[in-house]
Design a protein around this nucleic acid. Structure first.
Length: 326
DNA sequence: AAATCGCCCAACCGCAGGACA
DNA sequence: ATGTCCTGCGGTTGGGCGATT
């Protein structure tokens, strides 16, 4: 396999870094900050290409890097996150403080992958390698076969349920869980089934904009990580539901459709742009709360009660929000 | 002791996409 | 609208090193 060098310039060093080079790089970054990698080597007196410097810093020299063995907890997280994100190592790394994407990728390829295969689990699909059954492994994530997908959709019922799930996920990331439960009461979708899965990744960026409905009863949570551990269930079977939900946008109508499309189709943006200071936000949340508390609910079980109740609301129940929205 | 094998992981590569002129 | 620069990402490589023969 022939490769062209990443850096065209002659005389640039490649391969392992020396201590001296490390020191130069550290000193430069500490003084000037990260960035400007292209010009950094010259300024720092390094005979390396900028890319190499960036990699060295990001994967090895950064002060916040946690070195050493991966804990069991970290490995579990990696498996779960891989089930959600696939080989999106940077996305996984963002959720494992102190670990780099490269480190996680290496650890996956050299340890976890093999271990999963040994256990008879396909590391790609997180399913049993013999295809006879889906393992009850907690790392099972978004990749399912079509049959199961269609079954899930079937049992899910009206599109509004999907919509509500998404709303629950979306808002659940921003709102204090217990506060919301107080409003909605037990059994509401916020109480048991919001998960740090797909929606968590969607929300990770969205939390930064803090376009949060305003209410004295609703507390904004800024830290998505804490939400992952405390606010949301670890029941990954729920992830399956949500991922199915997220796949299905076509049959949405009216408000839910617009709402969903906004949320679903733009992972990188927070399009639920409600002005934090606006009283409309409170109105919106009241509407939403009323719907979530609505009489027209039914309990839905999923896959032998992997899931507890999810409130399902018929589409016409969205009329209020629909009108409000638009 | 020397040769070979296999694993690990730091580093490299090409590519995609955003920012900017 | 286009081209260039720059950064970040995921896939891959290859050197180091311990284990085995």
């Amino acid at each position: 396999m022939v490769r062209t060098p990443c850096c065209r310039a002659e005389g640039l060093k490649k391969g392992a870094w020396t201590q001296e080079e490390d020191q130069k790089l550290i000193a430069y970054v500490q003084h000037h900050g990260e960035g400007g990698w292209r010009t950094l080597p010259d300024k720092a007196g390094l005979k390396r290409c900028g890319k190499s410097c960036r990699l060295r810093w990001a994967n090895y020299l950064r002060p916040d890097i946690k070195r050493g063995e991966f804990s069991q907890e970290e490995e579990d997280s990696i498996i779960n996150l891989h089930a959600i994100h696939g080989n999106k190592w940077s996305a996984i790394a963002r959720r494992l403080p102190g670990r780099t994407d490269n480190e996680i990728k290496n650890h996956w390829n050299t340890h976890i992958k093999k271990r999963l295969i040994k256990k008879g689990i396909d590391p790609l699909t997180h399913k049993s390698l013999d295809h006879s059954e889906t393992l009850p492994d907690k790392s099972i994530g978004h990749q399912e076969d079509d049959d199961q997908k269609s079954n899930n959709k079937k049992s899910l019922g009206p599109s509004s349920a999907r919509f509500l799930n998404r709303v629950a996920n979306r808002f659940g990331k921003r709102l204090d869980h217990s506060a919301l439960s107080d409003i909605i009461g037990s059994g509401g979708p916020f109480t048991t089934h919001t998960t740090p899965t797909t929606s968590a990744s969607e929300c990770e960026k969205s939390t930064s904009s803090l376009s949060t409905p305003n209410s004295s009863n609703l507390h904004i949570i800024h830290d998505a990580t804490s939400l992952s551990s405390s606010t949301f269930s670890n029941d990954t079977s729920a992830q399956l539901v949500y991922d199915n939900i997220f796949d299905d946008v076509e049959d949405m109508t009216g408000f839910s459709s617009r709402f969903l499309n906004d949320i679903v189709s733009h992972d990188d943006e927070d399009l639920l742009m409600l002005d934090e200071s606006s009283s409309d936000n409170t109105l919106f949340m009241k509407e939403l709360t009323m719907i979530l508390k609505g009489d027209k609910t039914e309990t839905m079980s999923f896959n032998d009660s992997h899931l507890a109740a999810i409130n399902v609301v018929d589409d016409y129940s969205f009329e209020g929000i629909d009108n409000w929205f638009g």
